[in-house]
Design a protein around this nucleic acid. Sequence first.
RNA 1: GCGGGCGUCGUUCAACGGAUCAGGACACUGCGCUACGAACGCAGAAAUGGGGGUUCGAUUCCCUCCGCCCGUACCA
Length: 658
Amino acid sequence: MYLDLEQQLTRRIGDLLKRQYDVELPRLVVDQPPRVALGEYALPLSFELAKKLHKPPRKIAEEIVAGLGEVPGFAKFEVAGAGYINAKVDRVAAARMVLQEDARPKSEPVKAEKILVEHTSINPNKAAHIGHLRNAILGDTFVRLLRAAGAHVDVQNYIDNTGVQVADVVVGFLYLENKSKSEVEALIAHPLPGKPFDYYCWDLYARVSQWYEEDKDHLQLRLQTLHDIERGGNRAAEMGKLISTAIIRRHLETMVRLGIEYDFLPQESEILHLHFWDLAFEQLKHQGVLYFETEGKNKGCWVMKRAGSKGAEATAETSDQGPDEDAKVIVRSNNTVTYVGKDIAYHLWKFGRLGKDFGYQRFYRYRDGDQVWISAESGEADHPHFGDVDAIYNVIDSRQADPQNNVIEALRGLGYTEEAANYHHFSYEMVALTPGCAVELGYEVAEEDKKRPYIEVSGRKGFGVKADDLIGALIAAAEKEVNIRHPEMPETERQEIAAQIAIGALRYFMLKFTKTSVIAFDFKEALSFEGETGPYAQYAIVRATNIFRKAGLSAEQILSGAIDLRFLKDDDEIWELWLRAGQLSHVVKQSIVTTEPAYAAKYAFQLAQQFNNFYHKHHILTEADEARKRFLLATAAVVRKALVECLAMMGIAAPSVM
RNA sequence: GCGGGCGUCGUUCAACGGAUCAGGACACUGCGCUACGAACGCAGAAAUGGGGGUUCGAUUCCCUCCGCCCGUACCA
């Protein structure tokens, strides 16, 4: 509703400006007035026009209002303040639109046909921690938003199964624990009590890192193991595959608890063994993106100009002054490829510009029947096709901005300017621990660290909060509350509701911060079910549900029955609820174009807050006027529907009771 | 050094360059359940790091200083 009327309005204003003043504004700013009594849209454009037209803003505003005449859907235009134009919609007509619409933005914020979102991408060598949760929840929510907007989205979780991190755990099993392949297999099949395989590897990984510290010669073993894994066909490679595959399964299980699913798991092992790099290398050399360095510190390497490096224009004058020391190495002097190099090849594949595809194998099937595919050298004959997309979103933390930009730079250098423009690094800040939280967890914290606002988590040091531990703690806390409130309920039902509340709390917690904000993790805040939290919004829904239950009516019955919308005409507070509900598609659009799910989270909370207010003020079931009662019920139903839909986009369920 | 991000009530987070109190949450003080369940509501107190500039208008844009964080590998 809100989006449609806004478009209607801006189109009319645009026409009017051209006709009446022969001017065009690059973009028409549309605000909301401070109070809904003043209208639904506020246009500050006369301030901007004042200089151009040499007239006072207020006069321009009056002229525009006079020139607008009747606009369908709008009741009135008013000049306010120093020259604002406030537009008041026809509330009854707008409310009718709210009753009919769905969440899909009609203005198509998503241009691309096929979109690929990559998120999670945890190194498969240890349990997922809270930092990974933020990544996965941001990514999954963005996927849900895009799909709600009608986009076709594939979800990928990139698996770096041949990197140093996996190598480190392999070193741990082979050399620290002297375990054979079958012993590790047994550990995977029958984990120690209270210690799933990914937890086991979490500890082992930290021990190996410690072991490297003790004697630098141990690092030789790591290098050796890394090379063995990359080459394949040996003991270390087999062990690596065994470990990474088992850990991936654990990660999928962890994410399933949060309602997060993937379509495809591309692995680095296939990027290597199917020689993706060779094809990319040819293109890069051919287009001159890469050049061979013959002197300086990068002598003997294939390098490219670093993204954002200065002197791009100055090369003509400075080219005689020796090699570009700031260049990014893509192929090392020992002929191996760096991470960025592999990533370039991978991204050429994503955009269908590589000329080669993965093999695909079935890997995991979700309860809902959806299938996850994994890359393989020789895949199954019958498989879906991934890649070859129009736009990509890589949910990767902000620390990796440089390598991401280098990949984009390489694409641009290859002439794929459109692909480069449709390559979005969905960047977000990390989750760190407050010093207090670290102490609470029993870690030793240096005095100087205690003064810091937060401390970075580190898988290498085993320093952090594991995802499954946090989920477990949340469920236990929620269960306690549910048990108090609903002792009569069957246990399975109580558990289900506790899980919904726990996940709601966790997902909302990870979404309420904007991406640029570092989350300083603290148990007290994360475990809270009060205030600005997921359960707060869920509770508003439950309250509405309870009213309908007592009234003996379903939401559908209420919304399809006779509703006297004239009550809206002189009730600003209730009208604001309808207006908010009608803004859902606007919120979806904004969240997508700004790649900011926090925007949707804020909306959900505010809507719930307004509903709780309404709930407190109007006692619906005892309302004597039957028509008014039906109108109030419809208000609750409309808000509930918008809330349920918005929470669904965040992966938060609406519990039946709580 | 260079590049990027960030400094907002006690704490934590909001605010496309816009309208009277810069908004919410937590914490704090004081209230409100015989109601559609209080995982709620009401009231109170409390903030834009310093200095310039652009603008009709700056928390927002530009410059500068101070402070914090992250990058800046032939690691991923």
